[in-house]
C-alpha cells in the first residue's frame, strides 16, 4: 500500500507520462486494462468477426506489454527444446498472430466493464508476480489475472487467466498432441493454417 502511494506521488512528480519501464506490475496492468476498455468504448458497437479497429487496439496497448517469446515457450512446454531456434522463432510469430486475433475477438466483451485491481501475489520471486483484477460492469464480475515477469528489465505479461482459464494452458494441450503426432513442424503447420483462415 505504502509502495502504491509512493509510486502515485512519484508519478505526480514526474508528470503524467511515466514510461512503462518504470511502472510496477500493478500500474502496468491497470493502465493497460483501462486503456483497452476506453479504446473499445470509443468504437461504434462492433459486429462479430475480426474487426481491424479492435486489432489495432490490441497491437497498440497489449503487444508491447506481452512477452510472446515466453508465452510460446510456456505453450510448448517440454517440447520447446525439441524445436530448432528457427522453428522457435516461427512458432512465436505464428502463435502471437493467433493470440492477437483471439484477444481482438474477446475484448469487445469488455465494452461496458471497468477494471479493479484486487491484489498482487508473488510467484516465488520479486520479479514474477500475478496481478489479480476484476472487470466489473453489469452482471457478475469477471476475474482476469495477469502473470508478469521482470526478467528482461521491464514487466511483461506471460499469462492471462480469465475466470481461472488460461488460453496458454489450453494451447499447451493442443501443441503437446500435435508434437506427438506430427512433431514440431506439425505445430507450425497447424498455426499457419489457422492464421490464414
Amino acid at each position: 500500500m505504502r509502495n502504491t502511494i509512493a509510486l502515485l506521488l512519484l508519478s505526480l512528480f514526474v508528470g503524467a507520462s511515466v514510461p512503462a519501464l518504470a511502472a510496477g506490475p500493478e500500474d502496468l496492468v491497470k493502465a493497460m486494462a483501462s486503456e483497452v476498455t476506453a479504446s473499445v468504448r470509443s468504437l461504434p458497437p462492433a459486429s462479430n468477426g475480426v474487426n481491424p479497429q479492435l486489432t489495432a487496439i490490441i497491437e497498440r496497448e497489449l503487444v508491447p506489454r506481452f512477452d510472446f517469446g515466453r508465452i510460446s515457450q510456456i505453450a510448448m512446454g517440454r517440447n520447446w527444446l525439441k524445436a530448432s531456434p528457427s522453428e522457435q522463432k516461427q512458432i512465436t510469430t505464428e502463435f502471437s498472430h493467433l493470440l492477437i486475433r483471439t484477444y481482438s475477438n474477446a475484448i469487445n466483451n469488455l465494452r461496458d466493464m471497468d477494471v479493479a485491481v484486487r491484489s498482487t501475489r508473488s510467484n516465488g520471486s520479486d520479479s514474477d508476480v500475478t496481478v489479480r483484477t476484476q472487470m466489473v460492469g453489469r452482471g457478475s464480475p469477471t476475474s482476469i489475472d495477469y502473470s508478469l515477469s521482470n526478467a528482461t528489465g521491464s514487466w511483461k505479461v506471460y499469462d492471462v487467466q480469465v475466470e481461472g482459464i488460461s488460453l496458454v494452458a489450453a494451447y499447451r494441450d493442443e501443441f503437446t498432441a500435435l508434437v506427438s503426432s506430427d512433431g514440431v513442424p506439425g505445430v507450425i503447420a497447424a498455426l499457419k493454417k489457422k492464421n490464414t483462415k
Binding site: A169, A170, Y171, D173, E174, L178
Partner: peptide, 13 residues
C-alpha cells in the same frame, strides 16, 4: 475461432 482442435481446446477450457 481460436482452437486448432476444437474438441481438445474445449476440454481444456
Amino acid at each position: 475461432s481460436s482452437s486448432l482442435d476444437k474438441y481438445r481446446f474445449t476440454r481444456s477450457l
